[in-house]
Amino acid sequence: MTSPALFEPARLGPLTLRNRFIKAATFEGMTRGAQVGDELIEFHRRHAAGGVALTTVAYCAVAPEGRTERHQLWMRPDALPGLRRLTDAVHAEGAAVSAQIGHAGPVADGRSNGLPALGPSRSFSAQALRMVRGASQDDIERITRAHAEAALLAIDAGFDAVEIHLGHNYFASSFLSPRINRRGDAYGGSLANRAKVARDAARAVREAVGDRIAVLAKLNMDDGVPGGLWLDESLQVAQWLQADGSVDALELTAGSSLLNPMYLFRGEAPLEEFAAAMRNPVVRLGVRAVGKRFLRAYPYQEAYLLDSARQFRAALDLPLVLLGGISRRTTAERAMAEGFQFVAMARALLREPDLVARMEKDGDTRSLCIHCNKCMPTIFSGTHCVLATDRAAS
């Protein structure tokens, strides 16, 4: 059975998208000097030409210390010319484009950025080999304002949407986590307190942009670590976001870039490839020695986040984007049949940027992606599928 909605126009807030497929944010590793260049533009143009309705630029940090490393893009006026070239290129292919905005928080590399990483509480970063500083009230208020300012810059750059990053134990997500957030003030303790950073950022963005662009949020359903955010609390946060009216849709995700990244990706854990990609010899040795504790392999299955996402679908009226293991047209049709408004794809599109267009022509088409996850370490040199025969086509 086919779903006629899958390849028909669909509303996302003020936007009309040409179909239900979203290119999920995957850090591209293509912004040397924290600027947009031809490689990043071509990366997103190819996905737009390949049939997706909306491609997501990742990762657009809202502040310089909110980057995972110093070459990562951050939203500021002198980045606008490159961003405008990118949005123009995507629009020329008939697709829309979203900017994923957020602050990396404790996932940021303070050593690379030359600025202290910020989290809800003081902690040690094994990735940066430096301390993460507990954010002050002033820090939190500044970062909240920075989300709104980044969204306004996105409008100036021609983006059709922004996606607020509330997942993976980045800044807002780390405050949500009872394991990471050990504060005793108004931002710690109860879920209502831990959710303030996420809710305030989303409300600030909505107040700044109104209905000029679509506003999505990428929200963890669970962190995948003992003592972390779990479904019951995440579902309450989603209900609060819906009640606030701050977002047009939620993209449901999982896992912790800080503590358990493979919980999101599933499939093979490319330990040796990650070690080889590390520039710091101490970090490289550490990855080889204890990396299995961090990069835990999880079995891959199609639509592996669907069981958890169903609980959100049952409890919310808000449009939802299903992410995680969507590599077949039948899987996307199943998502539509279960009430999800959009599906998001990442690794499958790295392998074949034209996959959506081919799925539209042939319902039996499925991705060639084998979920080896060897694309993950390529973020340090320009994200691509290592199995694609043509690097330019990945």
Rank of each mutant, 00 (worst) to 15 (best):
Y298S: 00
G267T: 07
D200L: 15
V225M: 04
A348V: 14
L54A: 05
D222I: 13
C372T: 10
P64A: 11
A150K: 03
M376H: 01
V225R: 03
R351G: 03
A214C: 07
M336L: 11
G33P: 02
A25C: 11
E302T: 11
G66W: 12
L285D: 00
D307S: 07
R288K: 04
Y263K: 05
Q341P: 02
D78I: 12
N19Q: 04
G29D: 05
A289M: 13
L305E: 03
R122D: 14
T26C: 06
P178R: 11
G363M: 13
T144A: 05
R76M: 11
I155M: 05
L387R: 02
I326M: 00
E93W: 04
I164T: 13
R206K: 09
A217E: 11
A332G: 07
I326V: 09
S3W: 00
S112K: 02
G167M: 12
R296A: 12
C385V: 15
L83G: 06
N373I: 12
E233F: 15
Y304H: 09
A108T: 09
K196G: 04
A275N: 09
R194A: 13
R334F: 13
L259F: 14
P353T: 13
Q242C: 10
L17V: 10
W230I: 08
A148S: 08
G255C: 10
R20M: 02
R183Q: 09
M75N: 03
D222Y: 14
V57Y: 00
L318T: 14
C369K: 04
C385R: 10
S173C: 07
G110F: 00
A10C: 03
E39G: 09
R313A: 15
E302S: 08
Y300R: 03
L271M: 04
G324Q: 10
D354Q: 10
R329E: 03
R111I: 13
C369A: 06
L54V: 09
L80G: 00
Q242Y: 12
A192I: 13
L231W: 11
S257I: 15
L115F: 08
V107D: 00
G94Q: 04
L80V: 14
L191R: 07
A277H: 08
A249E: 06
V62D: 04
A126W: 14
R20A: 01
Q301L: 08
E333I: 03
L115C: 09
G227L: 11
L129S: 05
G382K: 00
A393Q: 08
A126I: 15
V90D: 02
S123N: 06
I41C: 00
A315H: 06
R328F: 07
R11G: 08
A161R: 00
E163D: 05
G94A: 05
T389M: 05
